[in-house]
Amino acid sequence: MSMQSQHQSLPLSMKQVCYSTRGAALIHDFNLEINTPGISMILGHNGSGKSLLLKLLHGVIGPSSGHIYWNNQTPSIHQYWRTFLLQRPTFFNQSIESNIEFVLRIAGIDKSEYKQRCTQALEACGLSHLSQRNTTSLSGGELQKASLARAWVLKPSVILLDEPTVALDPPSVISFENIIQQFEKSGTKIIMTTHDLAQAKRLAKEIVFIDKGEMIEQSEASSFFVEPASIQAQSFISGELS
């Protein structure tokens, strides 16, 4: 579990970030500072802009205005110290190992390291026994783990996860969360979106609560669930916000 790179990624800073498309402002005047390691959970109901926020943080899309900095660096998709897990990952119709090797090739990793890195990543995600299995024959839980292994193989210092357990059954969710926690313990910064309060309670050190594309509240998970500062967060926790 000691694959993590020593890249200095934090602090993450978003200043007056807006994202608009087709005349609609989906993220507006968003300010955020993340300085601490551990799991930061972006919480909000469906359509609040969580996935969009992660895409902005990773660089998959750029902001319409404002600035995003990772340790004073503007995000780009070619910064391989930061990896991004999509809610619905896609794979080539090949073995898990081939899919992982593809990522190593993209990142320009020396070919001599492929085998060792693949083995370590698959082992960390509990997929060693499925390394040669074609991705088309994997279950939803196995696919998410394969996606995690594909991200982990690059030894990232930050992993962004977009509701990775949304379609998984409870045992698969727990198994996935255990892996995430192991990665976090090894020093990897985890930023994850969810609308699952129970999951946020189990994993989060810090909560970033967003609603309608706006940053509503950022606080320690322990205080957020006991005493949310905003009315929207109070409504969300009590199940009233829609």
Partner: peptide
């Protein structure tokens, strides 16, 4: 979207 998330250049 996956290719962008992986930072994969089209040629690869």
């Amino acid at each position: 979207l996956q290719f962008r998330a992986l930072g994969a250049p089209t040629r690869l």
